[in-house]
Design a protein around this nucleic acid. Structure first.
Ligand SMILES: [Zn+2]
Ligand SMILES: [Zn+2]
Ligand SMILES: [Zn+2]
Ligand SMILES: [Zn+2]
Lengths: 152, 152
DNA sequence: TCAAAGACGTAACTGTATAACGATCGCATT
DNA sequence: AATGCGATCGTTATACAGTTACGTCTTTGA
């Protein structure tokens, strides 16, 4: 995320939290910034290392901030990578899907109605009530596919 | 999994491995049995504890067996739970989806063509080539929903 | 029979996440 | 200003998950 987008994202987070009457504290803001600044998903301990520069910190500091940011929908957790990524549209809560490239590590966040619908239908058939759908597709992005093709 | 189903599943695994010309060794068979015998997904260290009874074992023992069983499609890993579960139809390789109940911990394995299709379509739109789709829906199973309803 | 590959034992280690407890901060009420 | 209370934070320790590295033994096929 470039500097300009980052500034905008943080400003948006500020105003969202103000609207909701919740406190985006310095710690939380810092962790959010670190997550968003990264081009790729970042692990909790990577964040911890950066938070440690210029201040003491321990795992719970980071995990508490991440848990709160997750609850606010400002970041997402990628279960398959044990890593975190900034949400691209935190205004409204949503069940998103992720395309994760094993080649370059890039991640695309989708909000695909067809996927959500098919999951909902499958769940309904068995009387299952979904609360948190986790959809993470590992594979190869188009850039990485192209590179491979050129290499041959 | 009841005793009868378990015996059948192990026999099926035996014959599958024979067909494939791979070796279902005693260790692997034991881990498979422990995973299948459990009614719920089991963690690697739970398995380790059980393997330790009557024999020495360390983490690599269990992880090697699990990796092999995963490669053979005899068990699945649930990324959101860091736990393992026996496959309900290991005859053919497949991309399955899981409905995981947060109430009782039960898991249903689906093989839903509509879900797989919508994932494939969404990926194709962006030129992404899926290799391993992970679909795990957390929620409440019908039994647990019923219980809650009755409690009110 | 004799290498080569596969499977296993063992020790140490890295990485991910949580429990528990006390101190502190922000804010409303007295 | 002082009090009280819930939310937040610091700190230590620990639980849980997974890997690296290396040596030994077993199976298998030439
Ligand atoms: Zn999002
Ligand atoms: Zn890529
Ligand atoms: Zn399966
Ligand atoms: Zn249930």
């Amino acid at each position: 995320m470039d500097e300009q987008t980052l500034t905008a994202a943080l400003a948006r987070a500020e105003s969202l939290c103000a609207e909701r009457g919740v406190r985006l504290t310095a710690q939380r803001r810092r962790v959010l910034e670190l997550v968003c600044r990264a081009e790729r998903p970042v692990g909790a301990y990577e964040i911890l290392d950066q938070v440690r520069d210029g201040g003491k910190a321990a795992p719970p500091t980071v995990y508490r901030a991440l848990d709160w940011l997750l609850a606010q929908g400002l970041v997402h957790k990628l279960e398959t990578l044990h890593a975190y990524i900034g949400c691209t549209h935190p205004e409204h809560p949503h069940a998103s899907q992720f395309l994760i490239c094993s080649g370059c590590g890039c991640v695309a966040e989708l909000e695909d109605a067809a996927i959500a619908g098919s999951l909902q239908s499958a769940a309904e058939e068995t009387g299952f009530q979904p609360s948190r759908p986790v959809v993470e597709v590992l594979g190869t992005c188009s850039d990485c596919s192209d590179k491979r093709r050129n290499d041959r």
